[in-house]
Computed example of a mutant assay.
Amino acid sequence: MNDNLWILDLSNNSLSGTINITFSIGNQLHIIKLDGNELQGKVPPSLINCKYLEHLDLGNNELNDTFPKWLGELPDLQILKLRSNKFYGPIRTDNLFSQIRVIDLSSNGFSGELPVTLFQNFQAMKTIAENSGTREYVADNLFFIYTNSLIVTTKGLDHELHQVLTTQIIIDLSRNRFEGHIPSIIGDLVGLRTLNLSHNLLEGHIPASLQNLFELESLDLSSNKISGQIPPQLASLTFLAVLNLSHNHLVGCIPKGKQFDTFENTSYQGNDGLRGLPLSKHCGGDDRVPQAITPSELDQEEEEDSPMISWQAVLMGYGCGLVIGLSVIYIMLSTQYPTWFSRLVVQLEHIITTRMKRHEKRY
């Protein structure tokens, strides 16, 4: 391969077989895009020779490999896309990937817990770029000879970015088999614009540290097993335009205010324990949904609302008790079985006395 080549773009063709390109030492490649083909096998180890590489896209192929952590040794790598392949296994890294701004590992077979060390190493994501008034792009030195586009997924739809700003910081680990908790250390990536961890096996709570992601525009944690409440601190994320927490095990009240007042039902559906707007289950004393009143409760309310009827019932109770008492005494004196009648008397007296006390307490 020509050592003076800066861009290798063979995307969206019908290439098949393995990637049999050998990248020589000292090459000048800044962008390699082989996405949208039918390439198989493993990621070629000779990519480690591409010391100037800024953008690597191997997405939408049939590559079958573990996570190529050694790519983290490339000092200028800012975009890594391995989406829609057959990568598998846990992600283990060392002190690498310090310049990464976009990492898309979605729609693979990665498993295990989310790699805390990987997030720790994303140094470029831990700063917010100062607004200098000028736009800076990934591979900016090639801006006049090549359009460095990028496909990102938001709301389940793919969108093309014709140029990739250095402020466009994205993590997409969706549609894998990651499990365990969401690491709170993600809250340190204050430059993050898009975070997609949907369609995994994640459990535990949403970390309140996500409130530190002041630049966050899109958050998708849908289709996991996340429980607990939505941290009210997330209402402080004023740039949050897309939120999807659907199909989890969340409970409690949905935070109010700012961006949370703009999200629709689809952001929360599939969480039976959630309440509050925009859902039909409301929060608060005055907003609670009225419950059906049983006939016995209705009768009790009518008795409480009608003192005349209640006092009549009291007088009737006294009269009935007097008649029943005299009748029982007569039967006991005129029969030979006073024992079981005496038990009956005790029970009747208890019933009558209990009813009298209820009416006396009420009025």
Score class of each variant (00 low, 15 high):
residue 168 Q to K: 08
residue 338 P to C: 10
residue 205 H to S: 13
residue 224 N to A: 04
residue 187 G to S: 09
residue 122 F to M: 12
residue 214 F to G: 03
residue 347 Q to S: 10
residue 28 Q to E: 13
residue 248 N to C: 08
residue 335 T to P: 03
residue 135 R to G: 00
residue 263 F to W: 12
residue 175 R to V: 02
residue 114 L to E: 05
residue 110 F to P: 02
residue 128 I to C: 13
residue 124 A to E: 10
residue 27 N to S: 09
residue 209 S to L: 03
residue 55 H to D: 09
residue 31 I to E: 00
residue 308 M to E: 15
residue 238 T to F: 11
residue 202 L to V: 03
residue 5 L to I: 13
residue 340 W to I: 10
residue 83 R to W: 02
residue 175 R to H: 15
residue 76 D to A: 11
residue 108 N to Y: 06
residue 97 F to V: 07
residue 221 L to N: 06
residue 252 G to W: 05
residue 239 F to A: 09
residue 222 S to T: 03
residue 23 F to E: 01
residue 69 K to V: 09
residue 289 V to D: 10
residue 321 G to C: 07
residue 34 L to G: 06
residue 226 I to K: 04
residue 356 M to R: 11
residue 293 I to C: 06
residue 13 N to H: 13
residue 215 E to L: 07
residue 81 K to M: 02
residue 358 R to N: 03
residue 63 L to S: 05
residue 260 F to S: 03
residue 307 P to S: 06
residue 274 L to G: 02
residue 342 S to G: 15
residue 276 G to S: 06
residue 38 E to R: 12
residue 337 Y to E: 15
residue 45 P to V: 09
residue 211 Q to D: 13
residue 187 G to M: 08
residue 168 Q to M: 11
residue 225 K to T: 02
residue 334 S to A: 13
residue 155 K to M: 10
residue 224 N to H: 08
residue 78 Q to R: 14
residue 37 N to M: 02
residue 175 R to N: 14
residue 354 T to V: 03
residue 109 G to Q: 10
residue 43 V to R: 01
residue 101 R to T: 09
residue 194 T to W: 06
residue 328 V to K: 09
residue 287 D to S: 14
residue 16 S to Y: 06
residue 171 I to A: 00
residue 114 L to D: 05
residue 59 G to L: 00
residue 51 K to S: 15
residue 313 A to H: 12
residue 20 N to H: 05
residue 141 N to K: 09
residue 54 E to M: 10
residue 191 G to M: 02
residue 281 K to N: 09
residue 173 L to S: 01
residue 13 N to S: 12
residue 199 H to E: 10
residue 68 P to F: 07
residue 360 E to N: 10
